[in-house]
Design a protein around this nucleic acid. Structure first.
Lengths: 140, 140
DNA sequence: CTTGCACCCTGTAGTGACTACAGGTGCAAG
DNA sequence: CTTGCACCTGTAGTCACTACAGGGTGCAAG
């Protein structure tokens, strides 16, 4: 099974796992070059477009916002000799991601405790609602 | 220092740690009752509004979307005898949150490895960009 | 009384990253 | 030649705010 040399947006979507609407959105946003068109106006993509889209998808999956995806694409295009800038962007994102994970884990611990207190049932004053109404949030 | 019996939106914002615009947004969305007004149209809040807003804030901080905040507020208002529904909503949210944490931790591990490979510097082909272009993502 | 200032009002638009139509056209198979 | 899927553009909706613009209110000092 080989990839054809030219294909339409539906095939690109299947190939890349990115939805058609999202591909068109990336084009509007300038992340993907405007592809060629048939006489009738249908977009025609080449393997290089699929590669670029895969890069975008993987970068997004790592949680980079589109602005940073754009920057990383630019750095990749420019084949800049060093990866100093790439490293900086990635390291900052990693730090940010770790911060978010810690935030979520903190929330998760609090929530888990509250769910455990709320014994699935017929208690007269739901401890979960009580906690939301009264918890001492200074001691997070 | 006691809380006054009536105060304006700025004081409520300071008291609750919720921004003025957000308070007005919650009112538009029906999470907060429409407060009384002065002759000139200025919103006047009472301590019970501050309590309700604190409930909303804490519920939001636990990551519940506004729709679920609305539902929990309703359950708290109705003082429904059992907390079965509360437990169901909260447990579902906890499961969802744990899923998100796992997703983020997976991303974080991959990203950390890539950042480590990209040795801060002057490598000719940045391994980070290479990974984005080529990584075998089946083996996530 | 007037001025000044902080505070408040409404309404609208922008954010990020899509997603979901509505209403139309292209193209290939039978 | 018709059927029917794939594709097109453009707009609006999502979530939970946030940021104005362009005014009005209320209170104290001068």
């Amino acid at each position: 099974m080989t990839t054809p040399q030219a294909f339409r947006i539906g095939a690109l979507a299947r190939l890349s796992g990115v939805k058609i609407e999202t591909i068109r959105y990336y084009e509007r946003e300038g992340l993907l070059a405007k592809p060629g068109r048939t006489a009738g106006g249908i977009r025609i993509y080449r393997p290089s477009d699929a590669q670029r889209l895969a890069f975008i998808r993987r970068t997004r999956e790592l949680g980079f916002p589109l602005g940073e995806v754009r920057e990383l694409l630019g750095l990749a295009d420019r084949r800049s000799r060093s990866c100093r800038r790439v490293h900086a962007v990635a390291a900052a994102h990693l730090t940010e991601m770790r911060r978010k994970i810690e935030d979520m884990r903190r929330m998760e611990r609090i929530l888990a405790g509250m769910v455990a207190d709320c014994a699935e049932g017929t208690l007269p004053d739901c401890p979960f609602l009580e906690a939301l109404a009264c918890v001492d949030w200074a001691s997070r």
